[in-house]
């Protein structure tokens, strides 16, 4: 009756960077045929309270690619079960389930992109727009021996933000790290970028 004749997808795994989560698997190959895949997920709540319930993923039920962006499905900091099956016409494979449940708090956080410029004596920074989950901790200091490091929280990226009103002729250096409230973790600091007021950014 066409059930489970098709091999189930293998080698499921999740790559997660900066709260973008991608589920990938090895493609099922039937020469000359296009295989569809369906992805479903189950949060810890479903597995504890409604274990028979699996929820179709937002973007990959179905999909032709052997990968699925599950970012919009993984929206709580709990363990998620994930499964995939292949479909070819009326043929449907068995479900293949991710060996270890995925929790978004394991995402890799990379240092943010940072542009430092000035408008007259105003030190202005623009941080990489990584989405609403991200805040930024920005450290800056005057480039001179023994200078004190100042810290400022910046709520969103993608827009130029005034960091400090600086003193004429001074050179300032800036570095930043991301902070993701939902998982309570932060990235490493970015490389420091320096700028001499009335001048262009200096590379270190």
């Amino acid at each position: 009756d066409g059930v489970a004749v098709l091999p189930a997808p293998q080698n499921l795994s999740v790559q997660s960077t900066n709260m973008k989560h991608l589920l990938t698997w090895s493609p099922v190959v039937v020469p000359g045929e296009i295989i569809d895949y369906s992805v479903e997920y189950q949060g810890e709540y479903e597995s504890l309270y409604m274990s028979h319930i699996w929820i179709p993923s937002s973007w990959c039920s179905p999909t032709e690619n052997p990968e699925c962006d599950i970012t919009d499905d993984i929206t709580a900091t709990v363990l998620y079960n994930l499964r995939v099956r292949a479909t070819l016409g009326s043929q449907t494979s068995a479900w293949s389930t991710l060996k270890h449940p995925f929790n978004r708090n394991s995402t890799i956080l990379t240092p943010p992109g940072l542009e430092v410029s000035n408008d007259g004596f105003h030190l202005v920074i623009k941080l990489e727009d990584l989405g609403p989950q991200f805040e930024f901790l920005v450290a800056y200091w005057r480039r001179e021996p023994g200078a004190k490091e100042h810290i400022k929280m910046v709520r969103n990226g993608g827009v130029p933000v005034l960091l400090e009103t600086a003193e004429p002729g001074a050179a300032y250096c800036v570095k930043a790290q991301t902070f993701v409230k939902a998982i309570g973790r932060h990235s490493a600091f970015s490389q420091a970028e320096c700028v001499k007021l009335q001048g262009e950014a200096l590379s270190l």
Binding site: S117, D119, G120, F121, H122, V124, R155, V159, P160, V161, L162, T165, A166, E167, P168
Partner: peptide, 21 residues
């Protein structure tokens, strides 16, 4: 003059932009 825009997020109701041109 410089055709530059920047922004600030504040909670207080008094703000002084100093060292302008």
């Amino acid at each position: 003059k410089a055709n530059k825009t920047w922004s600030q997020c504040v909670t207080n109701q008094m703000l002084v932009l100093s060292w302008l041109e």
